[in-house]
Design a protein around this nucleic acid. Structure first.
Lengths: 214, 214
DNA sequence: ACCTGAACACCGTTCAAGT
DNA sequence: ACCTGAACACCGTTCAAGT
């Protein structure tokens, strides 16, 4: 990475490179895009680029860091929302929506994480962070009465994050999967998992419940 | 692929190549493994290999076909099981378990599908097939009374397949994620989604339900 | 200090030459 | 018909030479 006399310049160059690489990777994928392409997009020579990133793999680590930072900002935002059910729907729409744009980057990061120890470690920490934040938000929802008390917050958080991963993957590969059916399915998932006393109760019993308890 | 005078030889060679490639890809990943390595593992020259596969990309298409065929056999097997809840737990254990071995292949196939139209098409068809089979099995479960009538079979099938994708992804990247917690979470997911009249009903009401209806 | 771009070892793929 | 392996264009990375 070369000790720099001008940290501001170094930071600026790194951003230029990451930005250029993201454009190239989105267009052609991590392994299909060449360093020459990235150099051209960033407006610098190979030698200059290698002054700021010791290898192509390090560029994708920087991209993964950015993706994870973005996702964590999203989840921190919803963690403060009052209605956890609605917040989750919004979160998933945002995460999956953003992914539709960046699906190739996400898939590339994943595939690289399978080999790259550094990347795998960051991925792991990211998932753990997401899960913890969500568990806290769900527990808060339980105290507020907006989440069913019958479910363990850690369990719910685990299921939601796994579901989000699955949704991202699906949005990435199956671009035209019926989006309304998916949203409806997600609603069902969130309701059955989190809604206090959910729809499985027969109507006449549900009436008794509301009559006697609210 | 070269019209062959001996179709049996051609089939044998293709298998040798796919087998060799799977070994190499598992070890080093799709893009890290070189054609020279695959040739050496298959015991043939570059020219010979290219007689049977027109490109590296076509080898991964063959591998994806095999993965999909395996997964579809698994789902067809459970579709005939009596207890859909238990079958699903078994299915997930099998799919995720198999994946722990083949996670790098799965991730490589996914990342390639992001660029490779041919691969993406096969992926799409595979997901649709899985979903249809599962929906049929779930509908059968409803007729047998082992699945809650309050859920749409297509919706449930969609959620289960998305969840499976998420689980594969997680098993692939986060190898040491607490497996027991994951199994327990999955149990919760399946129960809340499919079990007739699940745990959200308060105990005194549940008692009334069983007293008056069964 | 920062940058250039030719050079290096290696990649996927081809094809003239062998049997 | 089937196979070999040197050759081709191109890859990620390095480094002597410039400013």
């Amino acid at each position: 990475m070369a000790r720099s006399a001008d940290p501001a310049l170094a930071e600026r160059r790194r951003r230029e490179i990451v930005e250029a690489a993201m454009t190239c990777f989105r267009r052609r994928g991590f392994h299909q895009a060449s360093m020459q392409e990235i150099c051209a997009a960033a407006g610098m020579s190979a030698g200059a680029l290698y002054r700021y990133f010791p290898s192509k793999a390090d560029i994708i680590v920087a991209i993964a860091e950015e993706e994870h930072r973005d996702a964590e900002e999203l989840i921190d935002a919803i963690a403060n929302g009052a209605d956890i059910t609605q917040s989750l729907m919004t979160l998933v729409r945002d995460v999956v929506g953003r992914c539709v744009e960046d699906h190739p980057l996400t898939a590339d990061v994943l595939a690289e994480a399978m080999r790259d120890t550094e990347l795998a470690k960051r991925f792991r920490e990211h998932v753990i962070h997401m899960q913890r934040r969500l568990a806290i938000a769900i527990a808060a929802g339980q105290r507020r009465g907006s989440v069913d008390l019958g479910i363990n917050p850690e369990t719910a958080a685990r299921l939601v994050t796994v579901m989000i991963d699955g949704l991202i993957l699906r949005a990435a590969v199956i671009r035209d999967d019926d989006p309304e059916a998916l949203t409806a399915a997600l609603r069902t998932f969130v309701d059955r998992l989190l809604k206090p006393g959910s729809g499985q109760v027969p109507r006449h019993i549900a009436r008794m419940l509301t009559d006697s308890e609210s």
